[in-house]
Amino acid sequence: MTKQKKTKPRVAIYKFTSCSGCQQALLNAEHDLPDILGALDIVYFKEARRDNFGGPYDLALVEGSISVSEEIEILKELRKETKTLIAMGACAVYGGPQALRNWTNMDELKKSSYRTPEHLDTLNWTGGIGTYVPVDYSIPGCGPSTAQLVEVIANFVQGRLPDLPRHSVCVDCKLADNVCLLVADNKSCLGPVTAAGCGAACPSNNRGCYGCFGPMNAANGMALARVFEKMGNSAEDIVLLFRNQTSNAEAFREVSLAYAQKRRMAA
């Protein structure tokens, strides 16, 4: 077979409001980086390149939430010049911890930190990039799993749809033979409503799941919240449990809003 010279896909690794941890997770794919660089022409990657080039792009992996108004326009431009746009990580998919502002009074928050808050150009409501543009695929997690990033890239390179699991973290816990923290230790754990992919990282280290991969595909958050209640958690505890990196995901939002209501009624 003669090797055909193919142009490599032009790729951008992009970032909005975020901690750069997702890009780091990609750079951590040390074993696969030679293959990735062999298959892709990564022309925009500020975390890893000195010089960066504009579109059009065949693929963009986008980290970060949309938290200031100028990001909306930049994102829309990026969408226009990108064939396949992938949200990478909890911020780009759900808004990340920046979305915690959605549950508070932003004006008061600004005043508490800045002497001249009127100079801030900050959105009062933060969401993932899917709030403003169509997204072709989402890789959840804070940070995302390096293995999943490589899996999605491998599938992109070979023209297949990625197939990341969206079942519960519990499945991964059972595969790893972990003893259930909910059942055997009365610990509040979001594992039964959270999408797998982390390899049950926190429960494997004796901590309840924080839900950073966002809701699983059949999440029943209210049922789990009622379990938390029976375990002795207050409404306030439950609000906080469901408000971490993925508080803006619908299946988690409905729980925290319901329990915030309960908390108000109790107060």
């Binding site: 519960s168 519990c170 499945v171 059972k174 259930c180 699983m216 999440a219 029943n220 049922a223």
Partner: peptide, 9 residues
């Protein structure tokens, strides 16, 4: 089923 989590435990 109303309280089933589909967690598959």
């Amino acid at each position: 089923s109303e309280r089933c989590l589909s967690c598959a435990n």
